[in-house]
Design a protein around this nucleic acid. Sequence first.
DNA 1: TAGGCCATCTGGTCCT
DNA 2: AGGACCAGATGGCCTA
Length: 284
Amino acid sequence: MKLAEWPSEEESSEVNPSRPAHLPKPEPRVWLPPAFQATCLPYHTYFAVPAGNAAALRDQEVVLGGRADAVPHAAKLLAQTALPGSGLCGVKGQATPASRQPTEPPKYRRLAANARERRRMHGLNHAFDELRSVIPAFDNEKKLSKYETLQMAQIYIAELTELLQNVGKQTRDSVSDCPNVKAAPNVLSPTNHCSLQHPISASFNIPERSPYVLSDSVGDAGTAAHRLALLSPPKSVRNESKVTSNRSDGEYSPHSHSSDLEEGQADTLLYQRSEHLSDFSHAP
DNA sequence: TAGGCCATCTGGTCCT
DNA sequence: AGGACCAGATGGCCTA
């Protein structure tokens, strides 16, 4: 998600905590961008496919981002009469396709549910991609896994939060240093000490994928890597209070494939990646 | 080759 | 009732 796409102050008034009490309870997700949606095709398009066109349609599935190779045998058989992955029109609030039959065979209902689930997961993956795009990372580095993406985002948010706090603090100090300068939000002038930066605007001005945003230019609280260590409880503590594992699928089982050593290696990997962020944070 | 990661299917549950 | 959400199962791809 691009920060620039966030709603303006006016647009986001629905989630303003100072809003009148008589208004409906704010929904924190109202400002979320529309979920990724695959192209919507008429219902019959998915279920009235001649068997001879199945191969071509599976090719289309690949083009559309699906993984026909990962479809189990049973699904492959069904795919000969249906088009999985292109996305059915079933988004909330969206009209049901006119061609839809009132009484659908259970098999079709299952296929439609599969398509919806697939589309939902595509939307989720799209969101992960957007999240990766705003997390500082090396271009030549291996793509962050979902688990790593979430962990890095957590670190990143913590960094930005602290940065905002420090900038706000500096702004207040600047006001006292420059009595003739009135606060001018949204005016960015990084070279002029007495020109105030709106904390929010200053942060939003950070270019995407900037490797420097973790730089704590106004503080000395330490590197991102150091803070990662602070964010992450000591391993001994994690082991003691472990309820969920570090596995990307969230699996926790006494019979888990991952040994303690392997989990430690995973921790090391994440730590090393965060150190990359720290290295960049000290770049000019 | 084992393990990690992922996409997909599937059935159950929750929600509107 | 139908769709969203969730978790388990399954199988493919990739890498050390």
